[in-house]
Design a binder for these strands. Structure first.
Length: 903
RNA sequence: GGGCGCUUAGCUCAGCUGGUUCAGAGCAUCUGCCUUACAAGCAGAGGGUCGGGAGUUCAAAUCUCUCAGCGCCCACCA
């Protein structure tokens, strides 16, 4: 048997076992579900191809891996489908940035084809690093099934779904006001815009009447848009202005005159009650303009500069222009007033710049038809959310859903499969030829393909289909993977992508496959730093998980993260600086736990070898079991039960706590200490070996239960203490079976009494300033029924409290000059003549007396209440009676001890 | 403006269907221990009127209402 280091060092253990698991292919599953196997499947939310592992991933993936490993060990055919997202905007902007920096060129300098080539090159070089990082975390995915959203098969599926939706009239092209990113030069969906509150100047401008005689006061926070003004609107029922409707006013700083119109959209009570209408640069104004047949004047360019309509401001950036215009307005005395105004402004989720409402041609998915069944699926429980309250958010979004702008003016992504004929007609098709056929055009006519790409999420929403090879070959819709593993069982993701991804997957799955994509959705916590801020690279408050793995071990990071992260709540992780790196010292918790487990294993290993145990030693027969053996067995089976209960209900923190308590408190603090006594008391090797076998079985069972959250250390120890071959794996083993017969609450309760007595004796010693190692004579008086029990555990009490073997007192007997106490009717005396500090002892006894008197009072009060006795459950009333009785007994004994002290 | 969530020890959080000596854990603090698995440890201690108030109930940290504070999401008042 090998010697084990005193401290557990995770680094080499973790890499070794991951390699062995991979080599043995224990995470790989067959395409066809084997007969008799029940599937359990999870779709990994594909990380961005450019992504780096974050604490968010750690939380997310630890949960997924926990369930995959747990279900695998429960005998399911467990499969975790991994993948990568091409992340259109994120990746393109990263590569564009790199090109600009290193070569000083833009994408347009290269042209589409060359640029996309460069992105692919870049992806080959740097992409997918995160998948390696996920291996460090221990993810037990079926890596052979890794899918990239721009793989051939996925491309086909994207194209096919676009064409089908187009043909069904659910994808359409329209000229609308959309969210425009001037940096990316692309449209964004509503979901990609973050509204942030900020304070800007709101200026009230003078729009002078064309026929003289004063002006209309119009407020705006965007004076640079006045060049796109086409009207001033007032409310139809606003008496102040009704006389002016139909007149024309002059747009400030221009020679243009625009009409005053009346429209319900205007709020009478806001500002001056007059609203400038700029259809090209505000979605609401656009609608007002449509109603009144107003022209659309575009005065801002795609890169957010003013154009020729702005006269002298032509070519100025929108924000520079604003400043200049403000100044000029002031000089021209066109400002009524200017005041601070707090409002929300849309920012691009990716680039962080202010989004510009922009009038352009885009592609949209009509969402109503898709949303209806998807809403129903959640309301009827075909898909369940954890925590459940997210269904409200989901319902609200789904019932107020707006069409999805899917076109992006990007080159990195899936190109829209639409072809335009010279006559202006267009259609979606797999090829130019097919497009011609669809439109009934002659082969000689050449068509032009749409330049745009689709939103990244337009491929992600097919994830449950593409990972399982739907239309992979362009033909087969019903693959064996889909038959075997769809619907998947669990999706683990952050609530921030409930609209982006979760809702849309439900829609796509129901529309294209008429099945829900998953049964349960677990929404994770959001990890924040100690000050409650979201972790982000720019704040430097985001620890690099790889650094944490190196410092604490991946097991420790997984364990601590899950221990800290309750279902559906934000979780705060303290972040401190460690030589310039962000560190999360709370991870010590998991590291210490790992070390504790390691040392428990060391102890068992050592004792087993001391007992000369061989691998075929039998466990103790039942008749040999001591009270402690039975107790730990009962606790063990209670823990198995708790593990299934907690994980079944997604109470993951409870699961981690249950194992912490069992392993550290029950097994290490109590059982191991008792084992030492039992081991020392009987020297015969047969007993010792059988005891060690018994303890090892339990410990290995606990390792199995812990494996889903701490896969590496459990695998390592399982091999070391079991002396197992390298090609056998805990990861591929079964969890210990739960046996309800072994749970004995009465026995657990009696053992708790023993624990309380030990605690009390330790406290007596410690509080009286007696050295822990000083052995004192110990006397004990208990009920006749308990004598056998206490007789059996006498040596345990002596050893754990480091006193002499307890002697039993008869009624009335009393040692002189002893520290005394009473625990649930059991009298305790520690004889310590020379060391008793009488004042201290009196103080302690008085305190205890008070506590018991309070207990007595509260019990008497309750029992004196007829309604309590009549209404409460019998066992509650009985417990109260017992409590009262033991308080009364205790009081008498304490008073007696006090009087002895006085004498 | 609408919706959701949170508030328990100095800090981070448990406390699942109201009741068992229920007010807990870890960290931090204090005291004592190198007791032959573990000082990343062992033993002990101090520390909270469970955000305020009202209600339901024999019984409330737990259920209801309300107020306050914090956070998140959604929403077209310039």
């Amino acid at each position: 048997m090998q010697e084990l280091a005193k401290q557990y060092s995770p680094t080499s253990v973790e890499s070794t076992w991951y390699e062995r698991w991979m080599a043995a292919q224990i995470f790989a599953i067959p395409e066809q579900l084997p007969k008799g196997k029940t599937p359990f499947s999870i779709l990994m939310p594909p990380p961005n191809v450019t992504g780096m592992l974050t604490m968010g991933h750690v939380l997310n993936h630890s949960i997924q891996d926990l369930y995959i490993r747990y279900k695998r060990m429960c005998g399911f055919q467990a499969v975790w489908f991994p993948g990568l997202d091409h992340a259109g905007i994120a990746t393109q902007s990263k590569v564009e940035g790199m090109l600009r920096e290193t070569e000083g060129i833009g994408r347009r300098d290269l042209g589409r084809e060359k640029f996309v080539e460069r992105v692919y090159e870049w992806k080959e070089k740097y992409g997918g690093i995160i998948l390696q990082q996920l291996r460090r975390l221990g993810n037990s995915c079926d890596w052979d099934r890794t899918l990239f959203t721009m793989d051939e098969g996925a491309n086909r599926a994207v194209e096919e779904t676009f064409i089908r939706l187009f043909d069904a009239g659910l994808i359409y092209r329209g000229k609308r006001i959309i969210n425009w990113s001037p940096v990316m030069q692309s449209a964004l969906s509503d979901e990609e815009v973050i509204m942030r509150e900020q304070t800007d100047k709101m200026v009230t401008l003078k729009y002078h009447f064309e026929d003289g005689g004063g002006f209309m006061s119009v407020a705006t926070v965007r004076p640079e848009t006045i060049f796109g003004d086409v009207a001033v609107a007032v409310h139809p029922k606003d008496d102040r202005y009704s006389a002016f409707v139909g007149k024309t006013v002059r747009v400030p700083l221009t020679d243009r005159y625009v009409p005053i119109i009346a429209d319900d959209y205007v709020e009478k009570d806001f500002g001056t009650g007059c609203l400038k209408i700029t259809p090209a640069h505000d979605p609401n104004d656009f609608e007002v303009g449509q109603r009144h047949n107003l022209p659309i004047l575009v005065s801002i360019t795609a890169d957010a500069k003013l154009n020729e309509l702005a006269g002298p401001y032509n070519g100025l950036d929108r924000f520079d222009a604003r400043k200049r215009i403000m100044k000029d307005l002031e000089a021209a005395e066109l400002i009524v007033k200017s005041e601070d105004y707090t409002h929300k402004v849309g920012y691009s989720e990716r680039g962080g710049e202010v989004v510009e409402p922009y009038y352009s041609d885009q592609w949209f998915v009509s969402m109503k038809v898709l949303a209806e069944p998807a809403l129903k699926a959640v309301q009827e429980g075909s898909v369940r959310f954890y925590p459940e309250h997210w269904t409200k958010t989901y319902e609200h979004w789904m019932t107020n859903i707006r069409d999805w702008c899917i076109s992006r003016q990007l080159w990195w992504g899936h190109r829209i499969p639409v072809y335009y004929a010279p006559d202006g007609r267009f259609t979606a098709a797999h090829s130019e030829q097919e497009a011609r056929t669809k439109l009934g055009l002659d082969d000689s006519i050449s068509m032009i393909r749409d330049e745009d790409s689709v939103d990244t999420w337009f491929s992600s929403w097919l994830w449950m289909l593409t990972t399982m090879h739907w239309l992979d070959d362009g033909i087969t819709e019903d693959t064996s993977l889909l038959r075997s593993y769809l619907p998947t069982d669990l999706l683990v993701t952050g609530p921030d992508i409930i609209f982006f991804w979760v809702a849309r997957m439900i829609m796509a799955s129901l529309y294209f496959k008429n099945q829900v994509p998953f049964r349960d959705v677990y929404f994770t916590s959001i990890i924040r730093d100690g000050d409650g801020r979201k972790m982000s690279k720019s704040l430097g408050n985001s620890p690099d998980p790889l650094f944490l793995f190196d410092k604490y071990g991946a097991d420790a990071v997984r364990y601590t993260t899950l221990y800290l992260a309750p279902l559906g709540l934000d979780v705060k992780v303290n972040v401190v600086d460690d030589n310039g790196k962000a560190d999360a010292p709370q991870m010590e918790f998991g590291r210490n736990f790992a070390n504790k487990i390691w040392n428990a294993a060391r102890f068992l290993h050592m004792k087993a070898s001391e007992a000369g145990m061989s691998s075929n030693a039998q466990s103790m027969p039942e008749e040999e079991w001591s009270a402690a053996d039975r107790w730990i067995l009962s606790r063990f089976h209670s823990t198995i039960h708790a593990v299934h209960e907690h994980l079944g209900a997604y109470r993951i923190t409870e699961y981690t706590r249950a194992l912490y308590d069992f392993i550290w408190k029950d097994f290490c603090d109590w059982y191991v200490e008792i084992m030492k006594v039992q081991f020392a008391e009987r020297e015969d090797p047969a007993y010792r070996q059988s005891l060690m076998r018994f303890a090892l079985d339990l410990f290995e069972g606990a390792l199995a239960l812990l494996h889903p959250v701490m896969p590496f250390i459990t695998e390592e120890i399982w091999h070391v203490i079991g002396d197992r071959a390298d090609d056998r794996f805990l990861a591929a083993s079964a969890l210990p079976a739960f046996d309800a017969q072994r749970v004995d609450t009465a026995r657990e309760r009696r053992f708790e009494l023993l624990q309380q007595i030990v605690d009390e004796l330790r406290m007596l010693k410690s509080q009286s300033g007696i050295k822990p190692g000083q052995k004192l004579p110990l006397y004990l008086r208990c009920a006749e029924d308990d004598k056998e029990f206490f007789g059996a555990v006498a040596s345990v009490i002596a050893s754990l409290t480091r006193n002499e073997l307890p002697q039993f007192l008869a009624e009335g007997q009393q040692p002189e000059s002893a520290l005394s106490s009473v625990v649930r009717g059991v009298d305790l005396f520690l004889v310590a003549e020379s060391v008793i500090d009488h004042d201290k002892e009196r103080e302690r006894l008085t305190k205890e007396l008070e506590r018991l008197q309070n207990l007595q009072r509260s019990a008497e009060q309750k029992l004196g209440n007829e309604r309590f006795v009549a209404n409460a459950k019998q066992e509650v009333v009985d417990a109260e009676r017992t409590k009262l009785q033991s308080a009364v007994d205790g009081i008498a004994k304490i008073q007696d001890a006090l009087s002895r002290l006085a004498s």
